[in-house]
Design a protein around this nucleic acid. Sequence first.
DNA 1: ATAAAGTGCGCC
DNA 2: AAAGGGCGCACTTTAT
Length: 514
Amino acid sequence: MLPAGGTARRTSDLAEAVREVEAAERPRWVWADARETYPALLRAGVRVSRCHDVALTEGLLLAYEGRYGENRSARAAHARLHGLPVPDEQPPDAPGTLFAPEPLAAEAVAEVLADQLRRIEALPESGRFRLLVAAESAGALTAAEMAHDGMPWRRDVHDALLTELLGPRPVHGMRPAKLQALADEVAAAFGHPVNPDSVQQLVKAFKGAGVALKSTRSWELKQIDHPAVAPLLAYKELARLFSFHGWVWADQWVRDGRFRPEYVVGGVVSGRWATSGGGALQIPKVMRRVVVADDGWTLIVADAAQLEPRVLAAMAGDMGLARAAGEIDLYSALAQSFGGQRDNAKIAMLSAMYGGTSGDAPKLLAMMRQRFPQAYQFVEDAAKAGEEGRLVRSWLGRTSPPPSSRWKELVSGPEGGRAARDRGRFTRNFVVQGTAAEWALALLAVLRGLLPPPARLVFFQHDEVMVHCPIGQAEEVMAAVTAAAEEASRLLFGRTPVRFPMEAVAVTCYADAK
DNA sequence: ATAAAGTGCGCC
DNA sequence: AAAGGGCGCACTTTAT
C-alpha cells in the first residue's frame, strides 16, 4: 500500500500509519484490492477519501482489451507484466492461512500501477476511462463502508411483520402456521397431498385435475380457474418471504440493529453492483417498514427517475429525446410523440433499450425510429455489434465480454439466428445499463465526498441511495444529493439539456419514501 | 452423498 | 396480457 507517487513504507501499525498520512496528505491510496485492505482499516476506525483499486482497474482494462474474465488480481497483473505464469483466481476470502500467499510487495504494486496508467493513457478516450477508474475505486471504498456501517434494521419490527404474515417463528425445519395452512388448502383442493414447492408435483396435480400447465409461474396460474390456485399463489408469496428474508436470514445478516450485506463492486457485467450474500438488492418492498432510522436520526432516500432513457438521450446526442429528458417526467413529455399515451412512450423506450418485440412494440418502435432517429440508431448499432460478435462499450469505456466459443459455434449452426439475436439484445442493453451504472457510481462517489460527518451512506441499489444522518443534517444531505446528481451528470456528459432528477426525501421509515 | 442444473421470483 | 435486459437466492430435481 502506498500513496500514489510516494515512497513505499513498512510499518507494524498499518492503520495508524494510514491515519497519519491520510490526515496530512489526503493521497490517492493505491491498493492491490480494497476488499482485502479496507475492511480492517475501517474496523480500526480509519477512513480514506480516495484510492486507486488495482484489481478493479485491471478488470476494466482487461475487458477493454477483449480479455474479459481473466484473473484481474494485482498478483496476476504483475505476473503477466513479467511473462510469468498467471496464478489461479483466489476466492475473495479464501479460507485457511496455511497457503495464503504473502501480500504483493509495494514495489510490485507500483509496477502494475505504472503499467495501468500507461495503458489508460493510450486509450482513445483516456479521460473518460480515468473517470471510470476513479468512480469504480470510490465504489470499492463506499461498498466496504456500507458493509461496515450497515443499514438500520429493526429486528423487533421484522419479527412482528413476519409473525403477522406467517405466524410465530416455527421450530427448525417446520413451516410457519399460516404457510402450513395454505399448503393444506392446496392439498385439499386437489384431494391429495402435494408439495407446493415442487414444480413437478404441481404440474402433475393440475394435469390430474384436467388443467394443462407449461409452468407454475404465477402469471400463468392466475389465468386458471381451479380452487388450488388462490392458496397456491398466497403460499408462493409467503414462502419466499419466509425462506429469503425470514428469521434465519436475520440471524445471519442482522447484528446490532444493522443489516450488513456484502456488495460486489462491478459484480455485474454491465458495471452494476451485485451482492455475495444477504440479498441486499432484492429486499421485498414489504420489508421496507423494517428499515427505521435511529432515534434523533433520519433516512434520506433518493432515486434517479427514469435514469436509463435519460442516459440514452445524452449518449446518443438525440436532441428531440434530450428535450423530453429535460422534463421531470420523461414519459409524459414523450407521450404526444406516441399518440398521446404515456404508457406507449414507456413501452417504446423500454423496447428500444431491452430489445422487446412483443405486443405493440414493433409499431411503437417504428414511431420511435421516426421521431427519435439518433437514439433509435444508437441502440440499433449496439444490437448489430452484438449480433456480429463485436464488443460494445459504455460511455466511459466499460466493455462487454467477447462472444464465447460456444456462441460462435451456435451462430454458424441452424439456430444461429436465435443466438445472434440473443446477444444483440444483451449488447443493446449493455450500453444503456452500463452507462446508467456509471452515472450512479459517479453520483455515489461525489455524494460520499459531500456528506458531513456523521452522516453515512447505508444503502445503494442501482439508481437509489440511502443516507442515515442526524435529523439536523437532513436539509444539508438532501442538498448534497441534488448537487451530486448534477455533478455526476456534468462529469459524464458535460453540458447537456438532459436532466437527471434525483429528489431526496427525509423519512423515519424506508416504507414512507414513496 | 454432494454438485450442478432447472425453476421461480424478488429487486432495478 | 405477459415478454424484452441485468442479477441472487432457495428450493427441487438430475447428474456424478
